[in-house]
Design a protein around this nucleic acid. Structure first.
Lengths: 192, 192
DNA sequence: TTAACTCATTCACTTTAGTTAAGAAATACG
DNA sequence: CGTATTTCTTAACTAAAGTGAATGAGTTAA
């Protein structure tokens, strides 16, 4: 399990055995059951997550209705905005599968960085990369119709369509579950 | 003009006069005429932009049609994804007003960082903050209708609605210019 | 095992966005 | 200055998404 984390880190910086041990000393790994809520609306939090196995999901509740906005799966990291802004969270984070993840926080990050400053450099590279990716995803979302978004997802993240319930997928695509059903029917008709 | 940049930087780290001079030695400031294209589709680039005054805009061209996805105004920074991924750019960057900005690149960043490593720390903080902001914006976009998006923009970025042409604003909101016109008419009717 | 829920699909209907076209207003340019 | 071009608005029509309700499948819990 540790290897997955260190393989990931090695994409950015190289670590000595000593440095790896510093990181392991924090006991970051957690096994979390499906359905567990990691963060609730209104809560303050300092925790960042990195998914080793499984899937976590972020959602808002407006007018009593869940609105799913994102999924994070293997090798993906989430630092909820409330951690950065130090304000109460506007959304929920939950596990939609039994999940293994690391939970870290700013204090731990500061301590690691004081021991080997290249850790900050890795964080910089990672968040620049994630920002670029997020902006591309946002742009593609804006310039696409719901149908194009679905087809795009089918191509780029076919796993998500398998492992995620339809109604969560729908709101992730910015539409209602009924519209997703209909849209899929439309696509099937076109093919035939 | 320099003060705007240093005021911005001071939100993250404090700089000595010597350090400021290192940054100034790079001659980063550019005055750019309205309509100038800073980056074209297909180009490789290493340049990041920070807007001191004016407004820059990113857009795709698909089926011969411009699709505007973002605006960056005073005190906002853009590192195009192609800079991070080192691939040809998928979109254009242009100035929609006479604009004053700084143009920096990874080489310059590395040199500054070798002289005072806290520069990396600032970049980390900045991109973490921008990532959190981008994700919130994306989430809000997903859970809102075009009309809600427009009303939201009216509240949060009223300046954009004034300074940006309607047809660019429309695609920024994920709809066609005709739909934006109609939608605005609808809102006016409701008020009366 | 049955009863209660949740989830996905379908349908009819309403609302809104896309499309095409036309004209008015604003802007750019010779 | 007037002409050309671009931009914005309006309108009629089409296509797609939202809404509310019904159904059936699958799951959970008593």
């Amino acid at each position: 399990m540790h290897d997955i984390l260190f393989d990931f880190i090695s994409k950015y910086i190289s670590l000595t055995e000593d440095e790896k041990n510093v990181i392991l000393s924090f006991n970051l790994f957690r096994a979390v059951k499906k359905g567990t809520i990691l963060l609730k609306e209104g809560q303050y939090s300092k925790d960042s997550y990195f998914v080793l196995k499984g899937c976590i999901r972020t959602y808002y509740i407006t007018d009593g209705e869940e609105k799913t906005t994102a999924f994070y799966t293997e090798m993906e990291a989430l630092t909820p905005p409330c951690v950065v802004t130090q304000t109460p969270s506007e959304y929920y984070v939950t596990c939609i599968e039994d999940t293994i993840l690391t939970v870290s926080n700013a204090d731990m990050e500061a301590e690691v960085n004081s021991k080997f400053p290249k850790f900050d450099t890795m964080c910089k590279m990672l968040s620049e990369e994630l920002l670029a990716k997020e902006r591309i995803d946002f742009n593609e979302f804006k310039i696409s119709s719901p149908e194009q978004r679905y087809l795009n997802l089918l191509e780029k993240r076919p796993d998500l369509i398998q492992r995620v319930p339809q109604h969560q997928l729908a709101s992730f695509l910015g539409i209602k579950p009924q519209s997703l059903s209909r849209l899929r029917g439309r696509i099937l008709e076109k093919k035939s």
